[in-house]
Computed example of a mutant assay.
Amino acid sequence: MTGFSLGTFLAVSGASLVAVFVLMAVTAVIGRRQGRVAVVDTAWGLGFVLVALVSALVGTGAGARRVVLLAMVAIWGLRLARHMHQRNAGKGEDPRYTQMLQNEPGDPFLVAIRKVYLVQGGAVWFVSLPIQVAAATDVGLGVVAVLGILLWAVGVTFETVGDAQLKAFKADSANKGTVMDRGLWSWTRHPNYFGDSAVWWGIFLVAASAWPGVLTILSPVVMTYFLVFATGARLLEKHMAERPGYAEYQQRTSYFLPRPPKR
């Protein structure tokens, strides 16, 4: 296939799989020592950065695309990992994981490995397939790639601003027990998750701008599924359902895609 090296892709993909496996194994050990699975939230962003780095170093495709994707993933992933580490530092287990793992038979650590670490490790590898394919594609950047970079920028902005707004809201003791419904949070109940999704659709477009990157479309689809229905928005909504005022917030604010709030 012109411009694409299957051998390079297999080398990049294999090396990425090993790297993610090692990262999740180390994370599982740290999680067991700390007595909480939530440490995987920090490893989530780092896993993608690791794959992008492996792809940039092992890949033999167009240098510009490899460097651009590494920069995009590193900016997103390192910011996310830092944010999650700061958010979870000194705290107990995340209620989402408690709900996910409760009433499961067997050793809790082994259950966590099966239901969290392996699942998230596999998701990191699969979602990052556009990066791996791009590393084996010797075609320059084009208009579609530029559109992808712009969409990525929108996603990073939503994530960064949304997280900052929520942090400032929580820091004000006057807001204790109330629902954050200001700024970006008045346009979507999950600006950070929407931002994540936009980031990965943007990364996909950068990879899809050269064949056969378009074939990795299931990767951003899976990422969006995780963010909306699996470990992201759906679990958080269940956790917030009993908070006073949240039902009203749900009625006037979009679930995922940003739009002006209803009066």
Rank of each mutant, 00 (worst) to 15 (best):
F109K: 00
L129F: 13
T157S: 01
L147E: 02
G122R: 03
D138Q: 10
V68Q: 09
P105A: 07
E159S: 01
A123L: 15
V111F: 04
V133R: 04
G140I: 10
Q102A: 14
L110N: 07
G90E: 08
K170H: 09
V139H: 12
E93Q: 10
V139T: 13
Q102K: 13
N88S: 13
F194E: 03
H190L: 08
R79V: 02
P105S: 05
H85N: 07
L141P: 06
L110S: 06
L129R: 01
A112Y: 01
T178I: 05
N175D: 11
S186P: 03
T188S: 13
Q120D: 02
L70R: 04
A74Y: 03
L147P: 00
E104N: 09
T98N: 09
V179P: 04
F169S: 00
H83P: 07
K167Y: 13
D172R: 02
Q165L: 11
L110Y: 08
M180N: 12
V179C: 07
D172T: 04
L184I: 08
K176D: 14
G183V: 10
T157V: 02
Q86H: 12
G162E: 06
R87I: 13
T98F: 04
D138P: 09
E104W: 12
I149S: 02
G106E: 08
G122Y: 07
R87Q: 12
N88Q: 09
G122A: 08
K115D: 11
L118Q: 06
D94T: 08
V139P: 04
G122C: 09
T160A: 01
G77I: 01
N103D: 15
V111P: 04
Q86A: 15
Y117P: 01
V127L: 06
A174R: 10
G142S: 12
D94P: 09
F194G: 02
G106P: 05
T178A: 09
V124Y: 00
P95R: 09
G177D: 10
L80R: 01
L78D: 02
R79A: 01
N175R: 08
G121R: 01
A71I: 15
Y97N: 04
A135L: 05
M72I: 10
I149P: 00
G92S: 10
G92T: 06
P130L: 06
G177A: 10
N175K: 10
N192K: 03
Q86I: 11
S173Y: 05
V154F: 09
T157Q: 00
W187E: 05
V146W: 09
A134E: 11
V161K: 04
V124K: 00
W76H: 02
A168Q: 11
G140R: 05
A145D: 13
Y97I: 06
G142C: 06
R87V: 14
L151S: 00
N88D: 15
G162R: 02
T178M: 06
A164Q: 12
V161E: 02
L184E: 04
